[in-house]
Write a protein that binds this DNA or RNA. Structure first.
Lengths: 136, 136
DNA sequence: GAGGACAGGTCTCAATTAGAGACCTGCTTC
DNA sequence: GAAGCAGGTCTCTAATTGAGACCTGTCCTC
């Protein structure tokens, strides 16, 4: 609790410093969060958490991702050092993606978020229904 | 560690069940993650973590958010029960946003993610540079 | 009492981004 | 020799975003 606030306060200070300056916004945390906070990254990382997988295994696991977005998400994650890409010179060459140590280290905090989402989902859903039904 | 994997495995099972069915993807965790995983939600929640704030205070704190997106983000967060909106009938009516208990409960897991981002930023940045410089 | 400022938005339009799906290369199978 | 899979790329369209004009109402200043 106290820990959470101290982390967030540190971040806030960064952000308000930024609010002063005329420069474009530049904050490491935002930079990273923008990257892993997109629609597919978290899903891909969690899918790779159990075991390394090939391109088409990932596509089957995450049914509604398009090839285009899967390719792009994998490239971005590789670029950030969260996953690694291994090409095997088999008959039709196969490509395997696996979590790099950096990606592994993300599992812990990510799991706490997933756990939160899981436990609070019913509250959130109830709030939505209430909001949508409310007068006006 | 073990905890992280068990949470993620539970989620994965959900996802692979889903992979079997012909139905459109439907998973509580994804539902929630899509919502808070957008560009602005995390920023707004963290800004409100320190104290309740008014619309224009938020705009000043998050300099590069447009009015349109701030309004929309706040509505969505309110709808999900993460924040509450209070209108005061002052001379020019003022509107204050504050974290609801549900939003408070998100601070802890979110902070662990922010902390990760903060501590790993240099690794990620180094990986990017390496990737961008690499042959081809 | 006209002009400007601020609060909290909404609306419109242009630019960016995402998704569907056709297409490509190389190799195997019927 | 038609068809299928792997791992992508390319193109076209649809949805999302951001910039910024505009709106209503209440101050304050001159």
């Amino acid at each position: 609790m106290g820990t959470a606030l101290s982390v967030i306060e540190r971040f806030s200070r960064f952000q308000s410093d930024d609010a002063q300056s005329a420069e474009p916004v530049c904050c490491p945390v935002r930079d990273v969060l923008d990257r892993i906070g997109d629609k597919w990254s978290v899903l891909v990382i969690m899918t790779l958490a159990t075991r390394p997988q090939r391109f088409s295994e990932l596509r089957r696991a995450i049914r509604d991702i398009s090839k285009r977005m899967l390719t792009q998400t994998l490239r971005d994650l590789e670029r950030d050092g969260l996953i690694t890409r291994h090409v095997y010179a088999t008959k039709p060459p196969s490509v395997e993606y696996r979590l790099a140590p950096l990606g592994q280290s993300l599992l812990e905090p990510m799991a706490s978020l997933v756990d939160w989402a899981d436990r609070r989902y019913s509250d959130i859903h109830a709030a939505r229904v209430r909001f949508d039904e409310s007068p006006l």
